[in-house]
Design a protein around this nucleic acid. Structure first.
Lengths: 219, 219, 219, 219
DNA sequence: AATGAATGAGTATTCATTCAT
DNA sequence: CATGAATGAATACTCATTCAT
């Protein structure tokens, strides 16, 4: 049951050629995953598609999982890109605004490479769930917790950890699934709007005035 | 990307002996999945663990997926057990109460065989995601939609479909993940409480008076 | 390399019910072979198609080869039906006429159940070639040899055994293959005509006047 | 009933080592077929006998049939070796001589690797019959037809296609079977002699003077 | 470093045959 | 006699990984 191999790039590519090779391999891996699914994701196939020998692949990745890990690392790096800026910007904003910004940022993230995101989240077995999503989630959790603590007085939920857990889970999954099942609402902003409302009223105990909703417009 | 095989029991067991064999196989399958994960879930291993020959396994299940399907079918049947009664009972109850009942029922469901539930949801590839969860989710969606429509006037969310989507996703995932990550809050009822609050205030636009929370008690 | 099992019906069916069961099994076997080919010819499938249990099949046939053998025996019996009469009738006829009669009889035989004949000859492995065709061929060879010996003086081929061999091989294969590849010529009689001519002139050293040929008609 | 798999070598061996491996595999395949028959012809057994891993076998042959195909291709290539020269040499010769040359060439072909030839023709199912023999036969048919057309005036058979069919079938099968059943006559030339006589008199309608026969010598 | 030939344990699945009921 | 549940050796084929060149 225990996992066998660690999983990190075997060596820091020090030369440009090495870096180029690594890139070419990771790109091929992503292309195969997106185009043909996890079943077609074999090391030999990746090497072939990348135009390098299987030996070269193993020069840079000690095993299959390491390659997958690197691919995930890059993807999450993309996802998190801009989040620091967002956090900084919202430093002193009221809770509702922070939540809105966070939700919208999350939505943006999910529009980066939805196909890859889907495969990584749904088709790739165990490793994905455990190592990748866990690490990503952890970082998110920390940030969200800090933000909540800074606004503790506005929050009615007694157990802050629980609040953080519920909010992060909710935002992540609702948006994630919406990529494939509610892409229209995702793009229109309707989903972000409602989710934000839900989170804010959950945290503050006060309803957030509906913003773009038909009902609101009618009043 | 489409799968080829159908996946239903090969033959209806006609004798008691057959039925017992089928059970013993499905049980072994569940045990292996829970104990050793999907990677260890091989037909030969299942047969061995079940104490039957590999031939017997294939007598009743035309292929591996069929066995997995049956396992899932049994599990979801367990999950849905009692839901009809719950629905009937809550027929005329106010929205908040219906939500609370539904959430609590969902929590109960996830306490039935959490380990199996986790493997089935997270480790099992494709088939699981698509066929099983989809069908289960669909049934849930229908029920929830009906309940919402019956109380349309209380609900402030303009797009009812979107509301259904958000609510079902949220309840399902938050609780599902809590099984492994927040089992204490799941058992104590704290999670159900907060999630219910969140859903209700989201739907009605009015905060639900906090019930068992420390803060509420203090006021 | 050696063959494992003998292959003959396990017991003489003494009761009508037994005979009926045997028939039903053999028929199912033939149907499967013709319809789905040798690959689909499995004992379980035969039993199922025959509407009897696999156990019953093994009651009457000790193994798969025995069933195949019986099927072949019946088929060759059909093939040879009428040959005795033909031989008797041609007892005192001149060589050319005997040949013609034999060829035409062979053609008739091959029109009895051509599909079954084809599968039996082409798809069924080893056993068929060795046991069945060998025995059939042997009986044929004997008859033909007797006929040739009775007309030794008309035959110019020095080695009578060789002549018998060539003639039987030729007639059998040319006609057999014609079933699938020259069915028109087989039915029209053109093939029989030419083959007869070929054999007769080979044996007697004298050309047989062409009979129905266009060329002959034109002269 | 149609077969699914294509069947050609998976990759062109680029290094000498590869070529050697392919050869060693094909040789082992031939040896097993000849020595133990088609039933013993399993991919694992071939790999073992060849002294390579099963993986190596599949590196060069995508499936079992591909290996069989390559084996057949090599065998027929051997069979056809020298036929072009023969054809060229006999370009302007009289019909009788062409036939004699062709028959004798066919005899020679069948003495190349008779045991392999027998297994390939008789034991190997479907694929063998259809793909291999068919292609071989087709090439033969074309050549024979061309030769006949060039000498149309000498031939009395009205339907040339039928003549070609009868002649090719006869020569092929009579000789083929003689490998195992009449090897003496095959080597002595007696069979070739008689078959030639038969064909020539069939085509021309005139008896060919017996050549080496005892009877002829006595007159 | 790069190559790609080689490896072989492991996987799903089939099917002739047995035997308890 | 009949049933059909049970058997398990055997088979084709995959793919992550190694290592000689």
């Amino acid at each position: 049951m225990a996992k066998k191999k660690p999983a990190s790039p075997r060596k820091m590519p020090e030369q440009d050629r090495s870096r180029a090779t690594v890139d070419v391999i990771v790109d091929a891996a992503a292309r195969i995953l997106v185009k043909d699914g996890y079943d077609a994701f074999t090391t030999n196939r990746v090497a072939e598609k990348a135009g390098v020998s299987i030996g070269s692949l193993y020069q840079y990745f000690p095993n299959k999982d390491a390659l997958l890990s690197e691919l995930m690392r890059r993807h999450t790096t993309d996802l998190e890109k801009g989040i620091e800026a967002m956090v900084a910007r919202a430093a002193d904003a009221p809770l509702a605004e922070v939540i809105r910004a966070a939700v919208e940022h999350n939505v943006q993230s999910h529009l980066i490479d939805p196909a890859l995101h889907r495969v990584l989240s749904e088709e790739v077995p165990r490793l994905g769930k455990l190592d990748w999503q866990a690490a990503f989630a952890e970082r998110m959790t920390h940030r969200v917790r800090a933000a909540f603590e800074a606004r503790r007085s506005e929050i009615v939920v007694p157990d802050l950890d629980l609040a953080v857990y519920i909010v992060t889970r909710t935002v992540e999954t609702v948006i994630h699934n919406a990529v494939t099942q509610r892409s229209h609402d995702l793009k229109s902003g309707a989903l972000a709007e409602e989710v934000t409302r839900m989170i804010v009223s959950f945290l503050t105990g006060k309803p957030l005035a509906a913003k773009r909703s038909v009902r609101a417009a009618a009043e």
